[in-house]
Design a protein around this nucleic acid. Structure first.
Lengths: 140, 140
DNA sequence: ATAGGTGCAAACAGTTTGCATGTAT
DNA sequence: ATACATGCAAACTGTTTGCACCTAT
């Protein structure tokens, strides 16, 4: 069983209170407010352990590093804004996605990711630019 | 406009005749049958150019490197086998996936990925193991 | 002839790991 | 006390880039 360390608490807290899936890099930044010296390797190790315990869950979007969110959320999908690159939760799931699989295939799970512009970025007046934490990734 | 080189032809041919989305590493292997000395950097450069021309398309699955397939296919989704790790095309799209987005959000595109076991791996008798080209990745 | 493509090696980003040290139990 | 977590640096994987050379035009 796992030890209660301040690093681990800081990471858990960041994910629990994040409100949206967070990147490992964002987690270091957030956790450093509580544990200044925290290392990225620790974040990766904790995040892996927490995911195996079922406390958090990896949100893996096509072509991007995994983000992490709390696992106690109902089944939902994700929306990635083309502009600010943030990822949002999209509640619910209409089902029916699993039809059309070829004969003999069995479906265990599915992932749906929507791409577009979020409400803030859609509205020209109150335009929001990429946050500092995600701007680095835009060079891709 | 682009030059016709044997490297480029080999890569285009591999994707055109692949029948399923292929990884850059698989493309080097395939293209080497025609152009022995072909380099991975060339594959990445060609693949990027071909994608920009609209000849091929990137298929990006959550948590995995991009695969590439010909662009002249109708809209479809993908199925990844847990066992053999191959990716298959799933024809059609029932729609309705875009509902539930929060107010003010506009959807530009969507991706659906199904996970499970393909027909071959589902059938115990004719079990298929991971191919040599994908086995490396299983350590993840 | 020359613009553009290729191979090679080095650079990068994200992630993982070995090891000595620190700390929760 | 000691087993496990952390920090640091090094290793690793996938991808990109600088540069000298090669080749389709």
């Amino acid at each position: 069983m796992e030890r209660q360390t301040k690093q681990r608490h800081a990471i858990e807290a960041a994910i629990r209170e994040g409100g949206r899936p967070l990147l490992p890099a964002e987690l270091v930044t957030l956790a450093q407010e509580t544990v200044p010296g925290i290392n990225i390797a620790t974040v990766y190790r904790c995040v892996k352990a927490l995911a195996e315990e079922g406390v958090i869950r990896a949100v893996e979007l096509p072509g991007e590093p995994a983000r992490y969110e709390r696992a106690d959320l109902h089944h939902h999908h994700h929306f990635r804004c083309d502009e600010c690159e943030r990822v949002f939760d999209v509640p619910g799931c209409r089902g029916g996605v699993e039809s059309n699989v070829p004969d003999g295939f069995s479906v265990r799970a599915h992932e749906v990711v929507l791409f577009g512009r979020c409400a803030e970025c859609e509205r020209p007046s109150r335009k929001r630019t990429r946050s500092a934490t995600t701007a680095r990734r835009s060079s891709r």
